[in-house]
């Protein structure tokens, strides 16, 4: 964890090599998992099922990319799952009262950003621990969602609002190229802008970043706002996928996102990781979860398996990293 974004180029190539190896392993595991599940379910490889699979993890792609930014700064965002329900609720209410899909879109994204701003204020400005603050907003956002929906779902029929999450071009859901676009945009932000370098700097060494005048506390605020905005986008996709707004949408999605990001090689302690790893992590994790659902696994067994995957990956990571630094 001594390598920072500002480190020498020699260190950079070395860091990339370690990650490249991990990405190759991930790709291998993705292939193995797909083959395994294709035995369990012969429809696994059909184009339709791949479309369904990708659509079902589209939201996880977005949330995990936001989580990657957060975790690169050394933080965590437990509120994103609840935020999906909350911002979806705000968006659906705005849509049904005004009748304009675009006001609905804007309302959902702003609502997501508002929760993110609350997180960012408490974590960045007041320097409180990220998991405590986002645990509070985890409860708060879910509660607000329940209030907005009055604990009941609301059907949505506006085709423009449902377009992003619901429409397919042939076998290709439109949300897939959309996720790819978001990935490209966020990659540009992370690797080609000063903000991206500030994200790595804040996570590598907060004090040094502060001394160098990079204003890491401000970076933190924006990272959580970004995570919230992606939760708002995810809410729009979630509503589009099921044609209704649900107060319990996104339940425990933050947990899936954290697991996928760690799986993708982003360090829990900040400063190390890449968006590409997160994409591979989501793919592998998504295939496993989707496979468990397709094979009709008991949901309680699923959550046991999820917990074991998270703990296993963290254990493995710490073990290998410690081997390197020693």
């Amino acid at each position: 964890m001594t390598s920072t974004a500002m480190a020498s180029s020699a260190q950079n190539t070395k860091k990339l090599d370690g990650l490249t190896l991990r990405y190759l392993v991930l790709i291998g595991l993705i292939v193995i998992a797909s083959v395994g599940f294709s035995f369990a379910n012969e429809n696994f490889y059909s184009l339709t099922n791949i479309g369904i699979l990708l659509r079902s993890i589209a939201v996880l792609f977005l949330l995990s990319m936001g989580m990657t930014f957060v975790m690169l700064t050394g933080g965590i965002d437990l509120s994103v799952g609840s935020n999906v329900a909350f911002s979806g609720g705000v968006g659906v209410i705005a849509l049904t009262t005004t009748g304009s899909a675009f006001i609905g879109f804007a309302a959902a994204i702003f609502a997501g950003m508002a929760i993110g701003a609350v997180n960012g204020f408490f974590i960045g400005r007041l320097k409180l621990s990220a998991f405590m603050v986002t645990l509070a907003t985890f409860a708060l956002a879910r509660g607000l969602a329940l209030v907005i929906y009055d604990a009941d779902s609301i059907n949505v029929s506006n085709q423009t609002f449902l377009w992003l999450g619901g429409v397919s071009w042939g076998n290709m859901p439109v949300v897939i190229p959309f996720v790819a676009l978001v990935f490209i945009a966020l990659s540009v932000v992370l690797y080609k802008t000063t903000f991206g370098r500030d994200v790595y700097a804040a996570g590598s060494n907060f004090a040094t970043a502060f001394v160098l005048g990079r204003r890491p506390e401000k970076t933190l605020v924006w990272v959580y706002v970004l995570s919230g905005a992606l939760a708002g986008l995810s809410a729009i996709i979630t509503v589009g996928r099921v044609s209704s707004g649900q107060p319990w949408a996104g339940l425990y999605l933050e947990f899936d996102a954290i697991t996928a990001v760690i799986l993708g090689g982003t360090s829990l302690f900040g400063g190390r990781g890449m968006l590409l790893g997160t994409i591979l992590g989501v793919l592998l994790y998504g295939i496993i979860i989707n496979g468990l659902v397709l094979t009709g696994t008991n949901p309680y067994l699923q959550s046991l398996i999820k917990g074991m995957i998270l703990l296993g990956v963290v254990l493995l990571d710490t073990y290998t990293q410690r081997g390197k630094t020693a």
């Binding site: 954290i258 829990l268 959550s303 999820k306 917990g307 703990l311 254990l315």
Partner: peptide, 27 residues
Amino acid sequence: VLVAKLKLPAFIVTLSMLFMAQGLSGL
């Protein structure tokens, strides 16, 4: 042991235990 000996962050360890406990409770 996971937090003290293996130096893993407490919230990740206990978060994964949360899900395992939930899973076991239904199994």
